[in-house]
Design a binder for these strands. Structure first.
Lengths: 342, 342
DNA sequence: TTGAAAGCGGTACCAT
DNA sequence: ATGGTACCGCTTTCAA
């Protein structure tokens, strides 16, 4: 039924030129007379010719494909990052292959082997939700294949893209200060997570630059990221005296638990204690009150990682080291809009 | 530094055999003496030879790659489905390419053109969140390329995979009946969504088979999937008399709004009115009370779609028509555990 | 400016 | 049971 796809050779024959000529016009290379070029272009159009990328790839040793290797395809944060990667890859005409390793080294080994066999041009290692630093790739990555870590903490000799947790925390606390809060608590994440340290530092810096005292009793890590544990941790914070008037939570889930605890204690948000979260998951905006939170720049992180490897493909090896992408504060109803007079 | 990758030819030379022989052992084809086979295998191992998939693909006209084309990569339901596809594809040794069209036909056209140039072996059209039927692919898909719709409503002549919305709704209502509920309301989704009809039917069937009367005043569609609109809609349901003792909501978000309205009315969940949702988003389990809900079989849907196209690649063209994947009821705390005596 | 031909790294048919 | 070799579809010297 449907004709076999036209090949370059078919076009050449039909246009009465050599295949090399067709190839030249196809790639916009010089050395083709205007008349001939016109004719070839016309023929290409007539025959609906589309070059076979595989053949081209075989010849020039490029697959125009990069791969995202992740340990958790269903991770809460993966979509947005993937979209960022896909977006810039698309613009560059390269495809994005997906790989889920389930965090299993053996599987990662197999996946990488296969990807390398497929001649992927570059690799992005993306974390779904990782605690601690990732091990080096389960298979040595050949020199020519650029790779970057996306939301992964690992060997500093590889380029990696991370959110600016510290900056985000600073912005959150600064906002709280502006709204008049003075006793600002930090309901932090479990301490073994990398981001936890960074957010603590941001908190501390922001307090310091506002001339506010740092108090150990105002900082408590939650046992996990679960709202339930946050609920418990918030209990301690609520026992502080003098009482706190704001709490910065290291995630939206934690904030959910915190809000719950605050209400349970007969207090109001934001009138009695203001709350700001981190991540800006969709639940943040739907919560009551809508949660002021620090948005993770996932899309931009994906784009950044994509650009890095794309540049890498074009020769500029990604320079090692960490890129911190700024987080944006989204002010909503769980904090007061402006400073309140004394 | 790193040696160029060994090729089949290199192996042949080193093992003192013809390339065709190496190819034979590589593909486990018969017609190779045991001794020679041994030697070749050994050489392959020694040289760390791995066949170039691109070259192979060029020759046998297969890329061992399928593509997921979606209108919304960040859709709430996409991850799990993608993982299902990736999972079965992986087992079959085929890669999964990702494409986001943003629901834009022009972009879809460009994407498909590119994918076809890349010789993808099959296509899965996946919806992020679609209302109504999708248009046919923006580019005619060649005969040899199997395709399936995943969570897409569209041309019935293409194989498509959908959740069994009706069955899920039936199960939800049946559960409510078992727990003793008699005045069961349906807080449905916006009526222009396909699933809304199906869930209504399930509700009706389940009620009928329980011998319970159907009452128009107990069925109200929400203006949108937003919890806020559900809150409003729930107001009407709460005004019914005699009062309802349970509500089946067509989504977890709707259920969130419903629970809120119920509480606002001074009623308790599940003591006064039981609530069941649909989807089983992560918020369902974290909600208070934890939400009984009908889980969308996203992973299995992805697997199913994957298997369909994979079979298609191997010759068995996916038979047209809709596959309904069963939904599973997850009983939690927003419904009573068992029937309560009179 | 244009064409011929040698690959890229495999597969598969045809001899031997 | 093996080897030789013509492709797959495109790029890229090298000559003309």
């Amino acid at each position: 039924m449907s004709e076999a796809r036209a090949t370059l050779k078919d076009v050449a024959r039909r246009a009465n030129v050599a295949v090399s000529t067709v190839s030249r016009v196809l790639n916009g290379r010089p050395g083709v007379g205007t008349a001939v070029r016109e004719r070839v272009l016309q023929t290409i159009d007539d025959m609906q010719f589309r070059p076979n990328t595989i053949a081209r790839g075989l010849r020039i040793q490029r697959s125009d494909t990069i791969a995202i290797v992740t340990d958790d395809l269903e991770g809460i944060f993966t979509n947005a990052m993937m979209r960022g990667v896909e977006e810039v890859a698309w613009e560059a005409g390269v495809g994005v292959l997906l790989c889920n390793t389930y965090g299993d080294a053996e599987r990662e080994r197999a996946q990488l082997a296969r990807l390398l066999d497929k001649q992927v041009d570059a690799l992005i290692f993306m974390s779904g939700n990782r605690v601690g630093r990732r091990a080096e790739p389960a298979v040595p990555i050949p020199d020519g294949v650029p790779m970057v870590y996306l939301y992964e903490y690992g060997d500093p000799s590889v380029a990696s893209v991370l959110p600016d947790d510290q900056g985000g925390a600073e912005a959150a606390v600064a906002h709280l200060v502006e709204t008049g809060a003075r006793r600002i608590a930090l309901l932090n994440g479990p301490s073994e997570w990398e981001a936890t340290q960074d957010r603590l530092h941001g908190y501390e810096r922001s307090l310091a630059s506002a001339g506010l005292p740092l108090s150990d009793e105002l900082v408590v890590p939650s046992a996990s990221w679960d709202p339930e544990d946050a609920f418990a941790a918030m209990g301690m914070l609520l026992a502080a005296s003098p009482p706190i008037d704001a709490v910065f939570c290291a995630s939206d889930d934690l904030a959910t638990g915190a809000v719950h605890a605050i209400r349970e204690a007969g207090l109001r948000v934001p009138e009695d204690v203001q709350v700001v979260g981190f991540d800006d998951r969709s639940l943040a905006v739907h919560q009551r009150p809508a949660l002021t939170t620090v948005a993770l720049p996932l899309l931009e992180m994906g784009r950044c990682a994509g650009r890095l490897v794309l540049d890498g493909i074009n020769g500029e090896a990604p320079v090692p080291g960490i890129r911190r992408i700024p987080c944006e504060l989204r002010v909503r109803a769980s904090t007061r809009p402006k400073a309140v007079g004394p």
